[in-house]
């Protein structure tokens, strides 16, 4: 039980630190771009949020589209402090969640020895959770068209899982079969293809989207490197002793 407690403790510390770091990076880079995109979203109105389903479109808008939007939307944090506070909370909580996944995976293979090895585990997390799913489903801004949510989430999770297994095979198995299986696991999700919207028409300027993709990739890279490094650093202090 001590072992479980120590994993959670290390995840909580590493996740909180990486989550806070991520919040700062997001407030400086991605969030201003999201706010800019929401101006275009307001200008475009409901059709910009069409997911190929007119009925769902209005319910999916961000509350700016038409009258009565508040009832359709449900509760949302007020812009400014409240919105930022919820982003901080989301970053820290999911930071701890990702830390639990990272530490659990690494413990199966002997645990992260030090912060340097943690950086490489973090890079693996970046490849699994950002690069692999992001190839098929690039970061998107509000008011950008997308396919139905549930199939995209399923594809995202399946692609991340395939990438995680593939990396495990590549690093910890030595046979040619394992390498071929790993490559197949990396390629197949993209042969199947991520769910795409019927039309890519959007009021968002391409330059804005490009800046956003770069900002997301760089901030998540920092997040994962920090998370892995911190997990390695604190694992040595807590898990080793148990």
């Amino acid at each position: 039980m001590d072992y479980f407690r120590n994993i959670v403790l290390v995840a909580a510390i590493a996740g909180a630190i990486a989550g806070l770091g991520m919040t700062v990076a997001q407030q400086l880079t991605t969030v201003p771009l999201i706010l800019k995109a929401e101006v275009y979203e307001q200008g475009a109105g409901a059709p910009a949020h069409d997911h190929g389903d007119q009925a769902a479109a209005s319910a999916h808008s961000h509350g700016e589209a038409a009258s009565g939007a508040a009832e359709e939307e449900g509760w949302a944090p007020a812009d400014g402090f409240e919105r930022t506070a919820f982003s901080v909370a989301a970053n820290i909580v999911t930071g701890i969640g990702f830390a639990l996944l990272l530490i659990a995976a690494s413990e199966l293979f002997g645990g992260i020895k030090d912060w340097r090895q943690g950086v490489f585990w973090g890079l693996a997390g970046f490849a699994v959770f950002t690069l692999a799913p992001g190839l098929g489903l690039p970061p998107e801004l509000p008011a950008m068209p997308a396919a139905e949510l549930a199939p995209r989430q399923l594809w995202w999770v399946a692609t991340a899982l395939c990438a995680a297994i593939a990396l495990g095979l590549l690093v910890y198995q030595r046979s040619l079969v394992a390498v071929l299986a790993a490559i197949a696991l990396l390629v197949v999700p993209h042969l199947i293809g991520a769910p795409q919207p019927a039309s890519f028409a959007t009021p968002i300027p391409e330059g804005l989207h490009h800046s956003f993709v770069v900002a997301v990739v760089v901030t998540t890279l920092l997040f994962w490197v920090l998370l892995g490094g911190m997990a390695g650093l604190f694992r040595g202090r807590f898990v080793h002793a148990s």
Binding site: T30, T94, E140, A146, L149, T220
Partner: peptide, 30 residues
């Protein structure tokens, strides 16, 4: 459970609360 709850929940209020986070992490959103 934690990542799924914050990043993938279909509950509208949860989506709205973590909206900027979901976009910034490139989770499927909306």
């Amino acid at each position: 459970f934690i990542v799924g709850g914050v990043g993938f929940s279909h509950i509208e209020a949860v989506h709205n609360a973590a909206h900027d986070y979901r976009h910034s992490m490139s989770f499927p959103c909306h």
